[in-house]
Amino acid sequence: MKFIKIQDCYKVYKNGVTATAGLNLEISKGEFVFIIGATGCGKSTLIKMLYREEKPTKGKVIVGGIDVAKLRNGKVYKLRRKLGIVFQDFKLLPKLTVYENVAFPLNSMGLKKSEVKPRVIKALELVGLKEKIRSYPKELSAGMQQRVCIARAMVNSPKLLICDEPTGNLDPETSKEIMNVLDGINKELGTTIVMVTHDKDIVNRMKKRVIMLENGVLISDELKGKYKAHEGV
């Protein structure tokens, strides 16, 4: 079953820059996919379209049965509640504790305290940070902060986890830890993971599906692929 369908997708920004040009792509439920390519090849735009931060200029982007181009601004939250997003810069709120950060999406959805607590604990257990529940982000290492970000993305039990260079700010050892967490989530929970990365070692070690973009066009799509050198790198 295809969870993501991208059909003849074009994205041209107002300044005339073409980010994707006739992209066709399908990702099945439970897959772990790396998206690689040089800076400006359209990978960020592609994942931004998956969570409807950007709209395709032409073509279709369907995520979990929702046509994101047709989604009205006021209804975007419905799509976002079905997926989790992990950011390179973690995007944690510094004034909130680890618990409060992870509980943030559930509180925003208006869930009761009694419903929030067990789900937050479960998500923190998933990333191995249950003991840091009362800490503030600045008291944690970068790797731990990224794990909090993953816990926040997973607290809603999403079917799709979008990771935008989650190891971009981390050292190789911590990157490995984060990838183990993500791999565990993919294998144990069956969550579909789409991850944009520049990290050659990770891509080569994980042996997952690798999609490579160049100038907004898909140039290779391999199962158990390897990191390929591309122009500009």
């Binding site: 969570y51 931060e53 601004n73 006021g74 975007v76 939250y77 419905k78 799509l79 976002r80 509640r81 997003i85 995007k91 709120l93 943030f104 999406p105 925003s108 959805m109 208006g110 926040r152 809603n156």
Partner: peptide, 16 residues
């Protein structure tokens, strides 16, 4: 702004 951006990204509705 950061808080609002995160709220939007984690699926908070406009009302919230």
């Amino acid at each position: 702004q950061k808080e609002i951006e995160i709220m939007r990204l984690v699926g908070a509705s406009n009302f919230v």
